[in-house]
Design a protein around this nucleic acid. Sequence first.
DNA 1: ACACCTTGTGTCCGCCGGACACACAAGTTA
DNA 2: TAACTTGTGTGTCCGGCGGACACAAGGTGT
Lengths: 230, 230
Amino acid sequence: MGESRGAELLWGSRGKTARPQRLALTVDRIADAAIEVADAEGMAAVSMQHVAAQLEVTKMALYRHVASKAELVAVMIESAVGEPPDLTTVPGGWRPRLVRWADLMRAAWDRHPWLPAATTGERLTGPREVGWTESAVAALADTGLDGSERMDAVFLLSGHIRNTQSAATAGTQPWTAEKHLRDILRDHSHRFPALLEAEGSTNGSARDNGWSFGLERILDGLAVLIDSRR
Amino acid sequence: MGESRGAELLWGSRGKTARPQRLALTVDRIADAAIEVADAEGMAAVSMQHVAAQLEVTKMALYRHVASKAELVAVMIESAVGEPPDLTTVPGGWRPRLVRWADLMRAAWDRHPWLPAATTGERLTGPREVGWTESAVAALADTGLDGSERMDAVFLLSGHIRNTQSAATAGTQPWTAEKHLRDILRDHSHRFPALLEAEGSTNGSARDNGWSFGLERILDGLAVLIDSRR
DNA sequence: ACACCTTGTGTCCGCCGGACACACAAGTTA
DNA sequence: TAACTTGTGTGTCCGGCGGACACAAGGTGT
């Protein structure tokens, strides 16, 4: 990258050839470019080379602003999840608040389908991400649940978001591989009678990867516990 | 790899030097070696080179038996999850059956902590994996739930297993990063009052990443729905 | 005896993350 | 004004990755 500057030195205006007035590289610009790549081509396409090309610089230029790819991904995540919401204005107690929280979080993750892929494995965690957790835990303040129960409840809920979202972008699980599963069932239906029957007896509900079903079940389950504490 | 055979040709027994009586390479031996590597060093350490070295062959030899790394991983998964269980002998209806199913699945995933990492993203699915789903869906046969509800319920449950297991192996989520979270709270406690308070008011329960908590909530939530259908 | 087929080897390619030395403009100080 | 420092982008190199492809050398069937 960076074509030879020989001809330019010979023929160009010599005085001010190098480094034209190009936008300065910043962490934010890098993160935005990386997010753009990830939104369009998926997390697998986010390499230092690709992001740098997007900004018309060499990949090593990026390392002046981020220490490693892991750090770049961390910055991408912080930017993509956005500011955590304020749920204190939502009326109706813990359940409507959690529903609002889940909808907002799902919306953010919907805008950036690579978030599940980016947030697996050991990694750095930023303040906004912690802020989202804070927000949900706060919504459970007056439920009579103790601290670890509140944490576990939020973990359960956000895990559900993660699962439905990653299932949405990749036919990752046996039960969500729509077409794939149907093919298997056609060829091996005798081995999976219960799946075959379940496939046939759907009530024609909207296919949302079990998002609303799981959400309702989780909230119902929390309600059972919370009511029992009163 | 494979040192030059010059000296051997000059000094060796010439007739039967090459290809000593070494165990024949098979898909199963390759998968076993790969699983061994993954169990010991994690999924990131599973490369064709590393697995081949484990078997004392070149990496290209593996491609005589598997078409790609994705196929190797698929075979690893099929081998690692094991045969799906027969739950029909478990008494007490759907709930004990699902508890048994979840415990068995969690045990298998516990033996192979790389399973979460290996089963994310687009991938191939084998009969055993589908068999596990079949097994759980079958356990919900007499609940009055329709087909897609049964599928969604199993998705919800197995998603919880995946989440708790991947949280166990990597401090991946803000709420499971134990030490990390504690550090953040020490430095920024004013920004996360609810987390700080939750951290303090735990009832000293066993730390299992919310496994049993989430399992009970999910099953309670399913029970609410199932009871309402009767 | 010979041809074929199977199976493992060696070499090459492009891409990855990243270390490191260098180029060069701008600001600071003498 | 001249010399130095600092900050930012470039070029080159490295080891490791998945994988294509040609080749070697057994075993086997005719």
